[in-house]
């Protein structure tokens, strides 16, 4: 085995946490980014249209 068990466990225990924090920040930032607001607003209302045909 190229990778030692202890190394793997150490990576799991430390970087796993950093990864979690980074991911949480990224997801929240994307969701709250001001320039995305309009797109989300459009998306959430667009499914309510009654037009039941594909757009050309």
């Amino acid at each position: 085995m190229g990778i030692e068990h202890d190394t793997l466990v150490a990576i799991s225990k430390s970087w796993g946490l950093f990864y979690l924090i980074a991911l949480a920040i990224a997801a929240t930032a994307y969701a709250l980014w001001p320039s995305n607001a309009k797109r989300f607003e459009h998306a959430k209302n667009s499914i309510l249209d009654d037009d039941d045909k594909p757009l050309k």
């Binding site: 991911l23 997801a27 994307y30 969701a31 989300f40 607003e41 959430k44 209302n45 499914i47 309510l48």
Partner: peptide, 19 residues
Amino acid sequence: PKHAGRPIYSYRLSIISFW
């Protein structure tokens, strides 16, 4: 939302909970 005729309460929240 479609059947209720109301948009989802928070689209942002749905994205955050997705991840």
